[in-house]
C-alpha cells in the first residue's frame, strides 16, 4: 500500500465521484453518513450483480484496507490489555466480515476478467476500469490463454482457421470469436432517488417511473448509465 494516498481521506472526492452532477437528486446527504464498509457493501453488491466489469473503487479499497489494519492493531492492543473474550471475538468478527467483503469484491472482478479477458483488453473504456495490478494480471492471463489455445488446437488447424479471434481469416473481417458479457440480461435494482420517467429503449416506447427505494427488474443495458452515476444499486 502506498503511504502517500493524499486524497485517500478526501470524502468530498468520493461523493463527487459517486454521485456526479446529479440534477434534482437532493438526498446526497445520506451518502456522507454511510461508512466505508457500507459503501464497500454496495460496491460489492453491484459488482456481483452486473454482467460487465465496473470501475475499480481504488480510493475506497485503499481506505477500507487502512481501516482493517487499524482495527487489527487495536484488537492486538486490546487483547494484551484487557482479557474480555466476548468483546474480542466481536471485534474479530467485524474485521473478518470486512475482509470477506473485500476479498469477495476482488474475486468477483477477477472472475469477470477471466470470463472476458480479450473483450476487456480490446475495449479502452473497460480497460481503464481495472486497477493497475488487475491490468497486469489480465495481460498475463491473456498470454497464457492464447498460448494454450495455440498449442492445443489452433496450430493443428489449417492456416486460415488458426486464429483465436476470428473463425476464419477468409470470411470474417472483424474478430468474431470474442466472448462478451450479455448486457441484455435482467438485473434486480433499487432506485436510490426519485429519477422519474426513464426510457428503456431508443424508440421511447417503453418507459418506467423510478421512485426512491423501489425495486425493479430491468434489462441491464439501459440502466447501466444510472449504475455508473450511482443513481441505482443492484441487488
Amino acid at each position: 500500500m502506498e503511504p502517500a494516498g493524499a486524497g485517500a481521506r478526501d470524502e468530498e472526492d468520493l461523493v463527487d465521484g459517486g454521485i456526479g452532477d446529479v440534477d434534482g437528486l437532493d438526498d446526497v446527504g445520506a451518502d456522507e453518513l454511510r461508512s466505508d464498509v457500507d459503501l464497500l457493501l454496495r460496491v460489492w453488491q453491484n459488482e456481483k450483480c452486473a454482467p460487465e466489469i465496473l470501475p475499480y473503487e481504488a480510493t475506497l479499497v485503499e481506505r477500507v484496507r487502512e481501516q482493517i489494519q487499524l482495527m487489527e492493531e487495536n484488537i492486538e492492543a486490546f487483547a494484551t490489555e484487557i482479557k474480555d473474550d466476548l468483546m474480542l471475538s466481536l471485534y474479530r468478527m467485524d474485521v473478518n466480515r470486512t475482509l470477506f467483503l473485500l476479498r469477495s469484491y476482488l474475486r468477483a472482478r477477477l472472475h469477470k476478467i477471466e470470463r472476458f479477458p480479450i473483450h476487456i483488453v480490446d475495449n479502452p473504456e473497460l480497460w481503464d476500469r481495472l486497477s493497475e495490478h488487475e491490468q497486469e494480471y489480465t495481460n498475463k492471463y491473456c498470454e497464457i490463454l492464447a498460448k494454450h489455445f495455440e498449442k492445443t488446437v489452433l496450430i493443428r488447424l489449417p492456416d486460415q482457421y488458426g486464429s483465436m479471434l476470428k473463425q476464419t481469416s477468409l470470411a470474417s473481417e472483424e474478430n468474431d470469436m470474442i466472448t462478451q458479457p450479455q448486457l441484455n440480461t435482467f438485473v434486480f435494482c433499487r432506485s436510490r432517488g426519485a429519477i422519474g420517467s426513464f426510457q428503456l429503449d431508443d424508440k421511447g416506447d417503453e418507459a418506467v417511473d423510478l421512485m426512491t427505494d423501489d425495486l425493479y427488474i430491468l434489462r441491464y443495458k439501459p440502466v447501466r448509465k444510472l449504475l455508473v452515476t450511482d443513481k441505482i444499486e443492484l441487488i
Partner: peptide
Amino acid sequence: RTFFQGYSDALGSYMNDINLDLTVDATPP
C-alpha cells in the same frame, strides 16, 4: 500443466502485489 503453472504464477503475483490472499474466505464468515 504449463497453463496451470502460468495461471498459478499470475494469480500468485497478483495476490502478492495487492498483499492479500484471495483464496481464503470463500464463504461469508
